[in-house]
């Protein structure tokens, strides 16, 4: 028998009212693997991530982390699970009432009960890992550029050295160079930690850089999954259309034609 997947989604269904978002979704990520889920906007990528984090409850199906069913975990048990994870939000979602170092050290202080002094030292060390100097530590997030905020967000996600890290559109809204910087940092940081990562993205270049494996989501289901190196040669019509950004193809975009 193969090793238990680090993250496994079994037959997940989720809809809002009559609109079906996730339709019998099955995805699994092996330990130490980097999976990038790509897909257009509105295909359910964010909903999938929120289901895993417990921010949304799926109607049916199971979510397993390390083989343990956490679909309906709440309270203390959910916090135990979340202690293994880190997350980088699309717009960083830094706490604007706290300083940069307090943001990075947040999980260490709140969830792991560390004292403020040592937590600050670790925070500054994590900031240096993402290429930010100690002089930024006492600034407020609002004083930083979006690229810097994302790097602080990355430092916050890796601060407690989690086993699993989620990335929500890590390069969206960044210039190509900063996007590349973030991709490289994600690649390096997660490899150093040996962490399992699940990324959602629609940026093909970024996806190929950080992924071991790529899955294409369409209408709440995986239509193609395979090694990142195969993405340009697989010949799958869905993948071809997405990679080349064509309007015509099996993926239908809901816009009203004049």
């Amino acid at each position: 028998m193969a090793e238990t997947p680090k993250i496994e989604l079994r037959n997940i269904c989720k809809s809002f009212g009559k609109k079906v978002i996730l339709d019998n979704l099955n995805i699994s990520v092996a330990k130490g693997e980097s999976l990038v889920v790509i897909g257009g906007s509105g295909t359910g990528k964010s909903v999938m991530l929120k289901c895993i984090l417990g921010l949304l409850k799926p109607e049916s199906g199971q979510i397993l982390i390390d083989g343990e069913d956490i679909t309906n975990a709440s309270g203390h048990r959910r916090e135990q699970v979340l202690r293994k994870t880190g997350m980088l939000f699309q717009y960083a979602a830094l706490f604007d009432s706290l300083t940069v170092w307090e943001n990075v050290a947040f999980g260490l202080i709140q969830a792991h009960g560390m004292k403020r002094g040592p937590a600050k030292e670790i925070a500054i060390q994590k900031l240096s890992l993402v290429g930010l100097g100690a002089d930024l530590a006492d600034k407020r997030p609002a004083e930083l550029s979006i690229g810097m905020q994302k790097r602080v967000g990355l430092a916050r996600a890796i601060a407690a050295e989690p086993e699993i890290i989620f990335f929500d559109e890590p390069t969206t809204g960044l210039d190509p160079i900063m996007g590349d910087v973030i991709d490289t940092l994600i690649r390096d940081c997660t490899q150093d930690l040996g962490a399992t990562t699940l990324t959602i993205s629609h940026d093909m270049e970024s996806a190929q850089k950080i992924a071991d494996r790529i899955a294409l989501l369409y209408k709440g289901n995986v239509v193609w999954a395979g090694p990142a190196t195969d993405i340009n040669t697989c010949g799958d019509p869905y993948v071809e259309q997405f990679v080349h950004g064509d309007v015509d193809g099996p993926i239908k975009v809901d816009i009203l034609k004049p």
Binding site: K50, L53, G54, L55, E79, Q80, L82, R83, T85, G86, M87, F89, Q90, Y91, A93, L94, F95, D96, S97, F106, G107, Q110, A111, R156, F166
Partner: peptide, 25 residues
């Protein structure tokens, strides 16, 4: 206004992912 802004900028979700209960915090 403060909590609402935290909600729409995903800061409350971020609290949850850092295993901190937003009700408590």
């Amino acid at each position: 206004a403060e909590i609402g802004t935290m909600r729409v900028t995903e800061q409350i979700d971020a609290l949850v992912t850092l295993s901190t209960n937003p009700f408590k915090y």
